[in-house]
Amino acid sequence: MKPRDNAGSTYASPQVRKKLPPVQPPASSAPYKPEPALADEQYENILQIMSNMVRVMEYSPSAFAHADEEAIRTHFLMQLNGQYQGQATGETFNYEGKTDILIKDQGRNIFIAECKFWRGEKNYSETIDQLLGYLSWRDTKAAVVVFNRNKDFSAVLAKIKETTEDHPNCKKLIRQKTETSWQYRFTHRDDPNREMVITVMAFDVPHAH
Rank of each mutant, 00 (worst) to 15 (best):
V200R: 03
D152N: 14
V205G: 04
F117V: 07
Q83S: 09
M1F: 13
K2C: 06
H66S: 15
Q176K: 06
D129W: 07
T74F: 09
E58Q: 11
Y184C: 07
T92N: 09
G97R: 02
G86I: 02
F76R: 05
N52Y: 13
A113D: 06
Y84G: 00
C170A: 01
I110A: 03
D204M: 07
V146Y: 01
Q79S: 13
S51M: 12
Y95Q: 12
M201Y: 04
A208G: 03
C170S: 01
A7C: 12
A71S: 14
V205K: 01
V23G: 01
G97Y: 01
K18L: 15
G90L: 10
R108P: 00
M78Y: 13
N123V: 14
F203G: 00
E91Q: 15
H207V: 06
L132V: 04
A142S: 12
A37E: 13
D152T: 06
T92D: 13
M201T: 04
G97W: 05
N6A: 15
T180G: 01
L132E: 05
Q83W: 09
V145T: 04
Y43F: 12
E121G: 05
Q24D: 14
I46T: 04
E58T: 09
D166M: 10
I198Q: 07
M1K: 08
V145C: 02
L102S: 08
A88M: 03
V197D: 07
V156Q: 04
T140A: 06
L135W: 01
P61Q: 05
G97E: 02
N148W: 12
N81A: 06
F76K: 04
D139I: 03
Q176R: 01
A155T: 09
A158S: 11
T99D: 07
K98Q: 08
E114G: 07
Q130G: 02
A143W: 02
T127F: 05
V144P: 00
T89Q: 11
L173A: 00
V145N: 05
Y32K: 08
V205F: 05
D204L: 12
M78F: 14
A12K: 13
D5A: 12
S181W: 03
F203M: 01
N52Q: 15
D166A: 14
R119H: 11
T99W: 01
I110T: 01
T187H: 11
E69I: 08
K98P: 00
K159W: 09
S28C: 11
M196P: 03
F76Q: 06
V200K: 02
E96P: 00
G82L: 03
T164I: 08
Q106K: 13
A158Y: 05
I72F: 12
P34G: 07
E162H: 10
P31T: 11
F64I: 06
L47K: 00
K172H: 08
F76A: 02
E195H: 15
H207L: 10
N45Q: 11
P168S: 02
T92P: 00
D190Q: 13
Y95P: 00
K171Y: 12
I174V: 10
R189E: 10
C115G: 00
P206K: 02
K33D: 10
S29T: 12
Q183S: 13
H66E: 15
E35V: 11
Q176S: 03
F93Y: 15
D166L: 14
N193C: 10
I112R: 03
